[in-house]
Design a protein around this nucleic acid. Structure first.
Length: 912
RNA sequence: GGGCAUUUAGCUCAGUUGGUUAGAGCGCUACACUCACAUUGUAGAGGCCAGAGGUUCAAGUCCUCUAAUGCCCACCA
């Protein structure tokens, strides 16, 4: 046993055990009717991703839940996979090919997609490897990818079903357009951020009298070339006469009307607003109401187009400057006021989005949202912490239609086909039903010529023409992710042979609804809410019962960790330096429910140190088990009464701790569980128990108990720290199998004895007091001293006398005398516990004044407490209204305090 | 403009349904390398629980207001 090194080295153990677990298929989960299912689907990381601290936290939590439930006897499935992450991945690959001097459009679509697949093959498994490093116990045989062939079938199926149900429609609306990514974005993908802008006051001259103007205020003057009206509030007296008149749009020299609309806020700006239906969602609504034309003045890349005349080809922000300059020259700029405004930003590349009129596909959400709202209200899905319920409900109750088409190449192609012949026949002038520049306002459905189909049709079902082409757009990534809890089981099974179809249907039936979803608050809308809707729509059942929302990982200054800020702490670096167990434990121990996590690197030392502590305590235990002792000898059961107080104490502490840990896990209080285990092991087991029994460590009872406690602790600890617990498990005598396959320790309630815990701890407190006295006098440890104690109760006297050697050993004494009288010995300094007077005999001179001062301070402190209690007990309201047990406790406390006080006062008198 | 969260030791944070001497880790001070562990041990210092009101026998905990910080949502051009 002395071959065990004194430091735990995670590098020597982690990969070894992970390989074994995988080889033995311990992560595999298959329906087992004898067992209850437990299932978590992983939030699929982006296939382009690399593991960051957020992942580390997220997956540590999931792995703890998985391992815990597995040990608790559940058939436990952790479904792994990755997300194709349309825009994100496309951007990454575009950057990669840019290094070869290529742009996306230099390649054909198929070529580009081929490049993405290549990229995926090469780098797509990075994050999976990293999750393995972390210890993630996913059923890797089930690894899924949102662009898998079968998964794609699910996506198409869902699109078709929703279309047939009338919940998917195509239409021209103002959407969020990212000019850099050249695609539409959903509202959720275009979060608003405040930025410092200007409010430009522009003068639009009247046609009748060009010397007179209406002044409009705008933050985006470059869109003025697309203005088709100026609107005022009908109640606005300033503009009473103006309504109906015609203005000359400067620079463009077009005539535009002044219209009245209640949407206009009289208090803002000048009360007159320029109306640009093609470039602003509100203006669009006004335009629609008043039948205004939509003039799109921009190319999809954010440059002004030919509609902008002289400004054609100019970038939108450059054009802003130039247009303002030109207006100024013409005397048509009244003023510029600084004005903070908030604008949508592309969540992928952070470019300011452009509200842009285009034809897109949408999902009607109201109908889907309804049952999903109900489900949460009825508690079929529960959020932890609870407060997210409200966030979810607020969003769901105000849900907007979901723009699902994206003008990129990497993703699920929209299963919509167009028949050229029917389109022609349908008098549609659109040669390309996609982006129209400067088309007149349209809201047609183009029912004619549109074919929505699960597979590419050979010919048009209407006219039989083969002149058919597929919609160029792909679907929003989340339109596939929202199916994750059931599509990962190969739903709708069509792509499978009969045998596999049956098997997967069984799996789905067994594991769905899944048990818990663990994720970050950022994606409640993107993902969680939509999964609930999809689950209810297609499975007729919620996708998960619990949603645990953990905090965001931030750096020590509270900033979100991100590459661009350069404040990343790389989890792999931490694993390399401190070990995966240390990483996991440290993360868990500081994640109180739903709070953000502020991290600095030194936090991981705690985990590392704890691992080392476990390692060394185990060493001590192992080194002191009799060599021949078989496992069976160590599993014997002793009658409680035959065990020493200390043995009974540690067992009681073990089970009370485990009981609390269980409760913490069930409430998703991981930090609490971690800290309970930590404090039990370090302080109770190591600091007291092992130190106490060291003197007689080969005693049979002691061997059995220390073994038992260690063994159970390891099992309890395994979900948090899987590697080190496995390593030590195999060092235990007679170890077979893996700790993963053991059950989580059963809690033996009958062994929990709170009174006994207190008694043992009062014994320990005598030791602490003596150590304190030693430290006060600066007595070195090798200087054996003599102590006398006077216990004030019979039972304590018995305890102290029985465990005199414990006190002697732990406080490094020569002897401890139990006094039969409570008279202060000469040449001694004193201390008092609740019911034991302690005197440490000193050879040297005792400073009586100092000793007295100490006593007086203590007396004062206790008196204050006693007075407070007296006052409380004297209060009739308290005595009559507080629960009897609280009053009783208070009385007890006062009695104890009074006793102690009396003793202290007597001591003080003796000193005088 | 709405909503949520946070404010407790020098630092980072725990503190369940109110119950009475407010805890942990790190850091700090003093002492200690006798063989489980210096990634350690022993002892200690350190808190008007953001502020002001209120409810209650009892408030870090519940209510109201205020302040600071952070986050989310929202079409003031």
């Amino acid at each position: 046993m002395d071959t065990i090194p004194s430091r735990y080295n995670p590098k020597e153990t982690e990969d070894k055990w992970y390989a074994l677990w995988q080889e033995q298929e311990f992560f595999r989960a298959c329906p087992d009717k004898a067992k209850k299912p437990y299932c978590i689907v992983i939030p699929p990381p982006n296939v382009t991703g690399i593991l960051h601290m957020g992942h580390a936290l997220n997956n540590s939590i999931q792995d703890i839940l998985m391992r815990y439930h597995r040990m608790k006897g559940f058939e436990s499935l952790w479904m792994p996979g990755t997300d194709h992450a349309g825009i994100a991945t496309q951007n990454v690959v575009e950057k990669a090919i840019a290094k070869e001097g290529l742009r996306r459009n230099d390649l054909r679509r198929e070529q580009f997609i081929e490049r993405v697949w290549q990229w995926k093959e090469q780098y797509g498994s990075t994050i999976i490897k990293q999750l393995k490093k972390l210890g993630a116990s996913c059923d890797w045989q089930r690894l899924r990818f949102t662009m898998d062939e079968e998964y794609s079938k699910a996506v198409v199926e869902v699109f078709v079903r929703l279309f047939e149900k009338g919940l998917i429609y195509q239409g021209s609306y103002i959407i969020n357009w990212c000019p850099r990514c050249a695609t539409a974005l959903s509202d959720e993908e275009a979060p608003h951020h405040e930025l410092q802008g200007n409010l430009y006051y522009l003068k639009y001259p009247y046609k009748r009298d060009p010397a007179k103007f209406v002044v409009v205020a705008t933050t985006r003057p470059e869109t003025m070339l697309g203005d088709t009206a100026v609107a005022v509030n009908p109640k606005d007296k300033r503009y009473k006469k103006a309504v109906g008149q015609t203005l000359i749009l400067p620079l463009a020299n077009r005539q535009i009307p002044i219209i009245a609309d209640a949407m206009v806020d009289m208090k803002f700006g000048t009360g007159a607003v320029k109306v640009t239906p093609a470039h602003d969602p509100n203006d669009y609504l006004i335009g629609k109401k008043h039948g205004l034309a939509c003039i799109n003045v921009m190319f999809p890349d954010g440059r002004l187009n030919e509609q902008a005349g002289d400004y054609n080809g100019m970038d939108r922000f450059e054009a802003r400057e130039v247009i303002v300059e030109d207006l100024k020259e013409q005397g048509l700029l009244e003023k510029i006021d600084p004005h903070p405004l908030s604008a949508g930003h592309c969540y992928r590349c952070h470019t300011i989005i452009e509200p842009y009129l285009s034809k897109q596909w949408f999902v009607k959400m109201k109908l889907l949202a309804k049952p999903a709202i109900e489900a949460v209200k009825k508690g079929k899905v529960k959020f932890y912490p609870k407060r997210w319920t409200k966030v979810y409900l607020d969003w769901m109750e105000n849900i907007q239609d979901w723009c699902i088409s994206r003008q990129i190449w990497w993703g699920h192609r929209i299963p919509v086909y167009y028949c050229n012949q029917c389109l022609e026949a349908g008098k549609s002038k659109m040669s390309n039903p996609k982006l129209k520049i400067n088309s007149k306002f349209q809201n047609s459905k183009h029912e004619n010529g549109i074919i929505v189909s699960r597979s590419k049709p050979e010919k048009c079902p209407k006219c039989g023409s083969t002149d058919i082409y597929q919609d160029e757009d792909v679907l929003d990534t989340w339109f596939s992710s929202w199916l994750w809890p059931f599509a990962t089981f190969y739903w709708p099974f069509d792509a499978l042979n009969a045998e596999r179809a049956t098997q997967n249907a069984n799996d789905l039936k067994y594991f769905y609804p899944t048990s818990a979803l663990v994720t970050a608050p950022e994606i409640i809308f993107f993902w969680v809410a939509r999964m609930i809707m999809a689950g209810l729509e297609f499975m007729k059942e919620v996708p998960f019962k619990d949603v645990y929302i953990h905090g965001t990982v931030r750096d020590i200054e509270g900033k979100k960790m991100s590459k661009s800020l350069g404040n990343i702490i790389d989890p792999l670096e931490i694993i390399n330096e401190y070990g995966a167990d240390a990483l996991r434990f440290s993360l868990i121990s500081i994640t109180s429910q739903g709070q953000d996590v502020y991290l600095s690197k030194d936090r991981f030392e705690q985990g590392r140190n704890f691992a080392n502590k476990i390692w060394n305590a185990s060493r001590l235990v192992l080194m002191n088990l009799d060599p021949g002792r078989a496992r069976a000898d160590l599993c014997v059961f002793f009658k409680k009464e035959s065990l020493s107080v200390v043995n009974r104490w540690i067992l009681s502490r073990l089970y009370s701790t485990l009981k609390e840990v269980e409760r913490s896990f069930s409430e998703y209080r991981f930090n609490e569980a971690a800290n309970l285990l930590y404090s039990f092991f370090w302080h109770d087991f190591c600091d007291w128990y092992l130190e106490v029994i060291k003197a007689d460590i080969r005693n049979t009872h002691n061997q059995v108990v220390m073994y038992k406690v260690l063994e159970k602790f390891l099992r309890a600890m395994h979900p948090c720290m899987p590697f080190i617990t496995e390593e030590i498990w195999h060092l235990l005598p007679g170890a077979t199998d893996s700790i993963m396959r053991q059950s989580w320790p059963h809690i033996q309630e009958q062994i929990i004895d709170k009174k006994l815990e207190k008694e043992a701890e009062s014994l320990f407190s005598v030791v602490t007091h003596i150590r304190n006295l030693r430290a006060q006098l600066g007595i070195a440890l090798d200087q054996a001293v003599v102590v006398s104690v006077y216990p004030h109760t019979v039972s304590k006297r018995k305890l102290v006398e029985e465990y005199a050697s414990l006190i002697t050993n732990m406080a490094k004494l020569q002897t401890v005398y139990s006094l039969s009288h409570n008279k202060r010995p000469v040449r001694a300094i004193s201390s008092v516990t609740e019911d034991v007077d302690i005197y440490l005999h000193s050879e040297g001179v005792i400073d009586a004044d100092k000793e007295k001062e100490k006593l007086v301070l203590k007396i004062q402190e206790l008196r204050k407490l006693a007075h407070a209690k007296e006052a409380r007990l004297a209060n009739n309201d308290f005595v009559t209204r507080a629960p009897a047990e609280v009053v009783a406790k208070e009385k007890e406390g006062l009695a104890e305090l009074s006793g102690t006080l009396a003793r202290l006062e007597k001591m003080a008198k003796e000193l005088a």
